[in-house]
Simulated assay, not measured.
Amino acid sequence: MEDLTGQRLGSCVIIRHLRSGGMGDIYLANQPDLGRQVAVKVIRPDLGATFVDNSTATFLQEARAVAALEHPHILPIYDFGEVGGRPYLVMQYVPTGSLADLLAARTTPGFTLPMVPVLAATIISQAAAALQYAHDREVMHLDVKPHNMLMRLLGAPSDPKGAPQPHLLLADFGLARSVSLTSPGTPASGTPLYAAPEQFAEAAVPASDQYALAGVAFQLLTGSPLFSGSIAELLHQHQAVPPPPATALNPQLPDAVNAVFVRALAKNPNQRYSRVEDFAQQLGIALRTAATAPSAAAMAVPPPTPPRLPTHMPDQTVAPQPWSAPASATLADNAATVGMYPAMSAGNT
């Protein structure tokens, strides 16, 4: 990796390297004229990223389209260009990092797997709002995943043990369409762990984003990804294997969520919800039944047997034991199976 520290890219002076991703390197930079810090993504062909038309023209065209998107849950693109053969994007810097970073660190209240339904529903709803806004303007994301969900945490909760309020910023909109990864067997766009079946056949549609977002929601609520295995195994599972019921992995979820996932994760994109916002809305409605309607799987689990108490003690009730996530239910562990996630660090993805 070439060290760009101290070099200028357009209006930016590179401060330090933050991380490397599938398409390139992310740097913390300063815009001296504006007096602000920004994140700069530099595309690197040596990491396996290539331009679909062997030029940067399509990339710059996509960047221009994404820069025109103005939505509270879309990461702003401040500038873009090419210097010395290096195409780059200048974006808002989010020091908290991504949803993937928070889940891997396990230090922020609420950001553990499986996630409490109200927090998961908030995150999915914000992402769906951003996607729907883009879809209405004929822009697809094509790589929805926790790494591309940057998170601001707004203030401390009233309950010291509660989670701070999240404000999601969806990053890397549409760039997967102009920059592809050359690894054999990977989808033409997207990440194999979350990519919709049609993306492997280079036939992405807006509903492909819904499938990927549903895969993220499934992982947040159950603690496990939809599927696991090699890239070839993931391809087969996405195209031919029904996802497991969410309640089989987390019996505390209501049965209603299973039907929502069955539709949003349909192999045929025409059988999914007509709008990604519809999926998020139905998921929220299903999750709100959790407090009053536990799943059949949860009801089938017998309560723990109260211990035998000495006769001289008053009668007592033993509280039910909380459901605990399986040891393998971390995002980083599951993602490592397919080698998609590099070491995580704070800051933009």
Rank of each mutant, 00 (worst) to 15 (best):
M1F: 14
Q7R: 11
S11A: 10
S11W: 11
V13Q: 15
L18S: 12
Y27N: 06
Y27Q: 10
Q31P: 08
P32N: 03
D33G: 08
G35E: 09
G35N: 11
R36N: 10
R44Y: 07
D46M: 06
L47W: 05
G48P: 14
S55I: 08
A57G: 03
F59M: 11
L69D: 06
E70N: 14
H73L: 03
M91C: 04
T96N: 05
G97Q: 12
R106Q: 07
P117H: 10
T122Y: 08
I123R: 05
A129H: 05
A134F: 15
H135S: 09
E138Q: 14
M140L: 05
P146Y: 10
D159P: 12
G162V: 03
Q165C: 14
P166S: 08
H167N: 08
L168G: 13
A171Y: 07
G174P: 01
V179I: 12
T182F: 05
P184E: 07
P184H: 01
A188H: 13
A195F: 00
A195E: 00
A196E: 04
P197F: 03
Q210W: 12
L213D: 06
A217L: 11
F218T: 02
S224R: 15
P225I: 08
S228K: 04
S230F: 08
L234T: 04
Q239C: 13
T247A: 03
Q252I: 10
A256T: 07
V257H: 00
F261S: 00
Y273R: 09
F279S: 03
A280R: 02
Q281I: 14
G284S: 00
I285S: 01
T292K: 01
T292C: 01
P302K: 06
P303I: 10
L309F: 07
D315C: 13
D315H: 10
A319Y: 07
P326L: 12
T330K: 11
A335W: 10
A343N: 03
M344C: 13
S345K: 05
